[in-house]
Structure formats: structure tokens, C-alpha cells
């Protein structure tokens, strides 16, 4: 039974990584992707992970989500070592079209993770609640392939929320969406996160998105990658697409992150 975020003591961090190393075995042999990652994610925190493409952001997220094995160091979710997907950690994938089951309606897609763990009325209630959070009550009986990309991604988020996870891991969830849809989903995610107090680890390649949404931004650098920059984002909440993005604090933070990503330094 997943435990809701606020029921757990805030003192135990959602994730602790010490000297984490990950090696992927591909066609060209073993390849060390991540090395020497030290990382703590506090409960209720919204942390974004940035880095150049191929730097191992997604790999880090998959390790946290228990979908990928590490080759060294430790990873703990809450206070237990991660061996397989932890019960209250849910990953939201970038590829929404392949992560929804086309033969299930939106409602039944959202129910996928909870239908066998709860009674029918409980399950229906949770599904309705999750759909309301992402504003999809109207489309509950549609099939996912009839929905736009943004709506499909909201279904996937609703499916994760229905699990009442204490941690959401999001892998470039808005990467494939157009700018307008992206902005509205960012705000929705922000509201949901505040409402539920869920910890979010958010992988993205969009610097503005990372700064806008997060409490903290991590930048991976090097090959194998380690945490290069760990920057607290002290912007007031709730944030606003216009005023926040015009504030000097936001611009200064954005500047730092751009620099950390290697812009203006001429390398990589």
C-alpha cells in the first residue's frame, strides 16, 4: 500500500545516493555512464536534473526508479536500498504514446496500477480524483489514441498520481509537446505538487523549465557524468509564467545554469 507523502516523517530524505556508479552494456561493450554521484533529495522537494544530451540524466532517473541496476555505490529510497521499483515511487515516461495501453480507456489506463490492490469503489474514487487533478474528468471514457499529445501525457501523470506515490520521477515529460501545452502542463504540475506534497525528480533538457519549476537544479557534467552544479532556486511560490520569468532573480538563476551547461565557455 503506497503511503501518502505527508504521512511520512519529513526528516527521512526521499533519495540518498552515495558514490553511485552506473555501467550500461551496449553493442560496443560496457560503458560507464555515471560515476561518483552523491545526491540527496528531500521529502517534498522538486528537483530538476539537467545535462547535455547523452549525459545520463535518464539513466540516473531509471536507477532511482528501480528500472536500471547500478554498478557501484548505494541508492536508498526513503530508508530502504533500491532493488527494483520501490512501492511508492512512480516513473512518468517521455514516450506517452507507448506508455498508455491503447486498448484501455483513459479511466482504465489510470486504474492500471491500483485496480488489483483496491476495492472497486475505492479504485473508482481514486481514478476520479486523479483525473480531476489533471483536468481530464470529461475524457475518462475516451481512448488514449483519440487524445492530443498533451492530454495523453496528462493521462500518464494521472495514472501515476492515482498510485498516491510519495515520489514522482519524470523523464522529460513535456519534451515532445508544443510550447503552449508545455506551459499549461507545467503550471498544472506545480499545483498538483503543492497540493499533494509529492517529491518530484524531473529530468529535462529545457533550462527555463527546470529553473521555473524547481526548488533545486542539478546539472550533470563530464563523461562519465557527475553532479556539476547543485543550485537552490529560491524563487517564491506559486510561480507565474509571466511575472516569475521576468523577475531579476529568475534571470540571474537562469544565467548561472546556462553557464554551468557550458554556454559561453566553448567546450563540449
Amino acid at each position: 500500500m503506497p503511503v501518502h507523502a505527508d504521512q511520512k516523517s519529513a526528516a527521512v530524505p526521499s533519495f540518498t545516493c552515495e558514490n553511485l556508479q552506473v555501467t550500461l552494456v551496449g553493442a560496443a561493450g560496457a560503458n560507464v555512464i555515471l560515476d561518483g554521484i552523491d545526491l540527496t533529495v528531500a521529502r517534498g522537494e522538486f528537483v530538476s536534473v539537467l545535462g547535455p544530451s547523452g549525459s545520463g540524466k535518464t539513466t540516473l532517473l531509471r536507477v532511482l526508479g528501480g528500472l536500471q541496476e547500478k554498478s557501484g555505490g548505494t541508492v536508498r529510497s526513503a530508508d530502504a536500498p533500491v532493488e527494483g521499483p520501490p512501492a511508492d515511487v512512480v516513473t512518468v515516461f517521455q514516450d506517452y504514446s507507448h506508455s498508455l495501453l491503447p486498448w484501455r480507456s483513459v479511466r482504465r489506463n489510470v486504474a492500471l496500477g491500483i485496480e488489483s490492490k483496491l476495492t472497486k469503489p475505492e479504485c473508482a474514487e481514486r481514478v476520479a480524483e486523479a483525473l480531476t487533478m489533471v483536468g481530464l474528468q470529461e475524457s475518462a471514457d475516451e481512448y488514449p489514441w483519440r487524445l492530443s499529445g498533451g492530454m495523453q501525457q496528462r493521462v500518464q501523470i494521472a495514472r501515476a498520481l492515482a498510485m498516491r506515490p510519495s515520489v514522482l520521477l519524470m523523464d522529460e515529460p513535456f519534451g515532445a509537446l508544443d510550447a503552449m501545452t508545455k506551459a499549461s502542463l507545467q503550471d498544472q504540475l506545480q499545483r498538483v505538487q503543492e497540493l499533494t506534497g509529492t517529491t518530484v525528480v524531473f529530468v529535462t533538457h529545457d533550462i527555463e523549465e527546470a529553473v521555473y519549476l524547481s526548488h533545486r537544479v542539478l546539472v550533470l557534467e563530464g563523461r562519465p557524468a557527475h553532479v556539476g552544479l547543485d543550485l537552490a532556486i529560491g524563487l517564491p511560490s506559486p510561480r507565474d509564467q509571466i511575472t516569475t520569468k521576468e523577475s531579476p532573480e529568475y534571470l540571474a538563476l537562469r544565467h548561472r545554469v546556462y553557464e554551468a551547461m557550458g554556454h559561453g565557455k566553448r567546450h563540449a
Binding site: 526508479g65 528501480g66 528500472l67 527494483g84 521499483p85 512501492a87 515511487v89 512512480v90 516513473t91 515516461f93 514516450d95 507507448h98 506508455s99 495501453l101 492500471l112 496500477g113 488489483s116 495514472r159 498510485m163 520521477l169
Partner: peptide, 15 residues
């Protein structure tokens, strides 16, 4: 088969 489709049941804790 999309590897994502196989990750979904894992992250949702399906048997």
C-alpha cells in the same frame, strides 16, 4: 515491443 511499455507495469508495481 516498446521497452517503455514493459517499464510501465514495473513502475506501477504490477506482478
Amino acid at each position: 515491443l516498446s521497452p517503455v511499455l514493459l517499464d510501465v507495469p514495473r513502475t506501477l508495481g504490477l506482478s
